[in-house]
Simulated assay, not measured.
Amino acid sequence: MAEPVSSTATTATLAAVAGLAMLPGIDAAVVLGAFAGAAVFVLSSDSLSLAKRAVFFVASFIAGLVAAAGVASLLARWLPIDASPGVGALLAAALAVKVLLWLIRLADDPAAAMRGMKGGGK
């Protein structure tokens, strides 16, 4: 049986996403794409605590909403078809926090990052 806290949190999250998708001026595909991308990121990060996953979910969701159009335009340059902003939101949400965490690890040890860029960090 599912825990009541997780069921309540899931229901509240889905209700919030559905409510946000119904607001005028906000593309429903972008909201659903950002939600799906954030969910993919959170489900793929097993080593994080529950509190960190919740914070990263929100950060990833917001990044997906904000960067949807930019990522979709980048995809349109690389692919022969036009990419939907929903697809851009999915990719932005799934990759935003992962890329930021990687950049933070690089900033922790800049000398190792420079060695890695030069090819001598093996």
Rank of each mutant, 00 (worst) to 15 (best):
M1A: 12
M1V: 11
P4I: 13
L14H: 06
A16V: 13
A16C: 10
A18K: 14
G19P: 01
G19S: 12
L20T: 15
L20F: 14
M22V: 07
M22A: 15
M22W: 01
L23I: 06
I26W: 13
D27Q: 15
A29P: 03
A29F: 05
A36I: 08
A39T: 13
F41D: 05
D46A: 08
K52N: 04
R53A: 07
R53M: 09
A54G: 11
F57S: 02
F57M: 07
V58Q: 03
A59S: 07
S60C: 00
F61D: 00
V66K: 01
A67G: 13
V71T: 14
V71C: 09
L74A: 13
L75P: 06
A76N: 10
L79W: 11
P80N: 12
A83S: 15
G88A: 08
A92H: 12
A92S: 15
A93N: 03
A96D: 03
K98N: 01
K98F: 00
V99A: 05
V99K: 00
L103T: 06
R105L: 05
L106Q: 11
L106M: 09
A107T: 04
D109W: 04
P110S: 07
P110W: 11
P110I: 08
A111W: 11
M114G: 00
K118V: 14
K118A: 15
G120C: 03
